[in-house]
């Protein structure tokens, strides 16, 4: 049973490891135009479940699972452009 916790908005950069969230939208700006394409290609589209598996040392990238079978490394800077809606399982 998935319940959406309302009134809570965060970015991927703030999501705690092991917690699931749904992608809400990706922030767009003129510089990040190409980035949005890449993120969509990798499966980060609205309503997609997303989870942080772990974080590298020294502020390094996040290890993120997109859906259930795609895993990526992404820096905090890029993760900040991905807005999420946390859910409880």
């Amino acid at each position: 049973m998935k319940t959406i916790i309302n009134n809570l908005r965060m970015t991927l950069s703030e999501l705690k490891p092991g917690k699931l969230a749904l992608v809400q939208h990706i922030e767009t700006s003129t510089e990040t135009n190409g980035l949005v394409n890449r993120l969509e290609g990798i499966g980060i589209i609205p309503n997609k479940p997303i989870m942080v598996l772990r974080q590298a040392w020294f502020g390094g990238p996040l290890h993120v699972r997109v859906g259930s079978t795609t895993e990526i490394a992404i820096r905090h800077q890029e993760a900040k452009t991905i807005h999420l809606q946390p859910i409880e399982v």
Binding site: W57, H63, R65, S68, T69, E71
Partner: peptide
């Protein structure tokens, strides 16, 4: 049908050692 988002695959078990924040490097 896609598997669970929390699936503990072979890869996930391996990663917990090889990508360990201290022992990884």
């Amino acid at each position: 049908v896609m598997p669970s988002n929390f699936a503990r695959t072979f890869t996930a078990k391996f990663d917990s050692i090889l990508l360990h924040p201290i022992f990884g490097l």
